[in-house]
Simulated assay, not measured.
Amino acid sequence: MKVKYIAEPYGHDEFEKEINDFIKDKKIIDIKFQENFSISGLNEDGTKSALIMYEEHENG
């Protein structure tokens, strides 16, 4: 089993595409999602992340 961690700041639209592109040729065991958000003064900051547990497809 292998793992891949993907994280992206809020406001970016590539998160789902990046996950789909990565998993298209893998045997997926599980995907765990997490969102982190913080407010400091007038600044808002956050990230979305995914931990993908997978195996490579066997060749031949």
Score class of each variant (00 low, 15 high):
residue 7 A to Q: 15
residue 20 N to L: 15
residue 29 I to H: 02
residue 34 Q to E: 13
residue 35 E to M: 12
residue 21 D to C: 02
residue 43 N to G: 00
residue 14 E to P: 02
residue 49 S to Y: 01
residue 42 L to V: 10
residue 6 I to F: 04
residue 12 H to R: 14
residue 33 F to V: 07
residue 42 L to W: 09
residue 43 N to W: 04
residue 51 L to K: 14
residue 6 I to Q: 05
residue 22 F to L: 08
residue 36 N to E: 07
residue 47 T to N: 07
residue 44 E to W: 03
residue 28 I to C: 06
residue 27 K to Q: 09
residue 36 N to H: 09
residue 51 L to R: 11
residue 28 I to V: 15
residue 23 I to K: 06
residue 1 M to A: 10
residue 8 E to D: 10
residue 22 F to I: 03
residue 28 I to G: 05
residue 45 D to R: 10
residue 43 N to T: 13
residue 8 E to M: 15
residue 33 F to I: 04
residue 57 H to C: 12
residue 22 F to W: 04
residue 40 S to D: 08
residue 30 D to C: 03
residue 8 E to P: 00
residue 2 K to S: 08
residue 28 I to P: 05
residue 18 E to N: 14
residue 50 A to Q: 11
residue 4 K to M: 14
residue 23 I to G: 06
residue 1 M to E: 12
residue 14 E to N: 14
residue 38 S to K: 11
residue 36 N to W: 02
residue 38 S to P: 00
residue 17 K to F: 03
residue 14 E to R: 13
residue 5 Y to D: 09
residue 3 V to M: 15
residue 46 G to M: 06
residue 12 H to T: 14
residue 6 I to H: 08
residue 10 Y to T: 10
residue 52 I to H: 02
residue 24 K to T: 09
residue 49 S to T: 09
residue 56 E to S: 09
residue 42 L to E: 09
residue 44 E to V: 14
residue 2 K to Q: 12
residue 46 G to A: 06
residue 24 K to Y: 02
residue 19 I to A: 04
residue 27 K to M: 12
residue 31 I to R: 01
residue 13 D to C: 02
residue 24 K to L: 04
residue 30 D to L: 06
residue 3 V to Y: 14
residue 45 D to N: 11
residue 26 K to Y: 08
residue 12 H to G: 04
residue 36 N to K: 03
residue 45 D to T: 04
residue 34 Q to N: 14
residue 47 T to M: 05
residue 39 I to P: 01
residue 50 A to P: 09
residue 30 D to A: 12
residue 45 D to G: 02
residue 10 Y to P: 00
residue 40 S to Q: 09
residue 54 Y to E: 04
residue 8 E to Y: 06
residue 40 S to A: 06
residue 55 E to S: 13
residue 29 I to S: 10
residue 16 E to L: 11
residue 13 D to Q: 08
residue 44 E to N: 03
residue 53 M to H: 03
residue 43 N to Q: 09
residue 33 F to A: 07
residue 2 K to A: 00
residue 15 F to H: 03
residue 22 F to K: 09
residue 1 M to W: 00
residue 4 K to G: 06
residue 20 N to P: 10
residue 59 N to C: 00
residue 4 K to F: 13
residue 28 I to F: 03
residue 17 K to P: 00
residue 37 F to S: 07
residue 5 Y to W: 06
residue 4 K to S: 05
residue 16 E to T: 11
residue 38 S to I: 05
residue 60 G to V: 13
residue 53 M to G: 00
residue 11 G to V: 11
residue 32 K to Q: 14
residue 47 T to L: 06
residue 49 S to N: 08
residue 31 I to C: 05
residue 9 P to V: 00
residue 11 G to N: 10
residue 45 D to H: 06
residue 56 E to L: 13
residue 54 Y to D: 01
residue 39 I to Q: 08
residue 3 V to A: 12
residue 30 D to P: 02
residue 26 K to W: 11
residue 37 F to Y: 13
